[in-house]
Design a protein around this nucleic acid. Sequence first.
DNA 1: TTCGTATGTGAAACTCAGTGTCACGTTAGT
DNA 2: ACTAACGTGACACTGAGTTTCACATACGAA
Lengths: 197, 197
Amino acid sequence: MSAAARTHTRDIARAAVRAELAQVAFELFRREGFEKVTLDDLAAAAGVSRSTFLRYFGTKEDAVLGAFDAHGDQAADALRARPADEDDWTALRRALDTVIERYREDPARALATTRLVRETPALCARQLEKQHGWRPALARALAERAGSTEPATLAQTVRAAAALDCLNVALDHWTASEGALDLVELLDEAFAALEHR
Amino acid sequence: MSAAARTHTRDIARAAVRAELAQVAFELFRREGFEKVTLDDLAAAAGVSRSTFLRYFGTKEDAVLGAFDAHGDQAADALRARPADEDDWTALRRALDTVIERYREDPARALATTRLVRETPALCARQLEKQHGWRPALARALAERAGSTEPATLAQTVRAAAALDCLNVALDHWTASEGALDLVELLDEAFAALEHR
DNA sequence: TTCGTATGTGAAACTCAGTGTCACGTTAGT
DNA sequence: ACTAACGTGACACTGAGTTTCACATACGAA
């Protein structure tokens, strides 16, 4: 077996363990509340040591929010893949389709996760922080679409930020409706709210 | 002296101590870096006990960000004070004048603070969290302006969020320019970037 | 096989933020 | 003087996150 192939299978195994740990942690958090559960509890419940748990997720929060890390890059990639002649708003709106698709794949799970996050200040804060990191990535993608090698302009950054807000607000309303409302329609409505006058 | 008057003079004294502690902390943070300074360091430098320091600021972050707490309410109040026939965007833009006024009052201090915040992940995250709290307040103010007693609509929430982004992005660029650019113009430019097409 | 190395894991000590409790001193009203 | 309220300091405690070390297992090379 080649070194590359070995590394690959190791990564697969790691990802599986990671998913398992996240699952155990999530159930414990939902049952007991995020703050009540200590790292020792998590480690014990998952059958690993505290050290190991912290090696998989740098923080307690990341046991819940780890899955979100990919969303930002996915959205930025999707944005770059939009036709070059599309205006920024349409391109941003379409790029976010890739993100809300994750929610539509498994609405029950997404709903439970979102609820846990919203009712836990620490998770809420950490998620804000992560999403804040997406903004420059999206702005950069907008700049590249415009054929610029310069850093993103103020206007591009504002648009990227506003688009992320649309996503968030739409998700808030979707969560508040227990998933009854249509996420696509909510997101469209959010973008429409940005139209001036 | 009445009980109310006594309470009032006590509050004045407390505010003065608070300002003094914040000043000492700020200088220490700038000199050594936020992470390097422990609560014990802060207490020692300020000549109070760790307990006392933590009574004035619930967290280390709040020693830097305490002043920001008022901004959100100020902006919401300013928003409510705008003429009822003004459209949401104009009213939001004008309400933010009250916030940037704080920056124009003492640009050097504002610049130093903002820089410290931007280069310290923990402060950055905490500020995001605080600003996130302004959003519902602004959205609520928009709803009241519209004569509604209902909770804010999705559209109003999106607009409030976008306006806050404009403020943030404008401040980012202002900070990056070392205060050379005009904050009012940057904010206007940010709002202009929200115009569709 | 055996040796060496890389990697995953566990154990433990450590730092530090934040909470809670209690005792002490000061202030001001009775 | 008595006391009630409040600000402060000292201390113990919890829990997150870091670091270090030792051990085990797996794999490639000799």
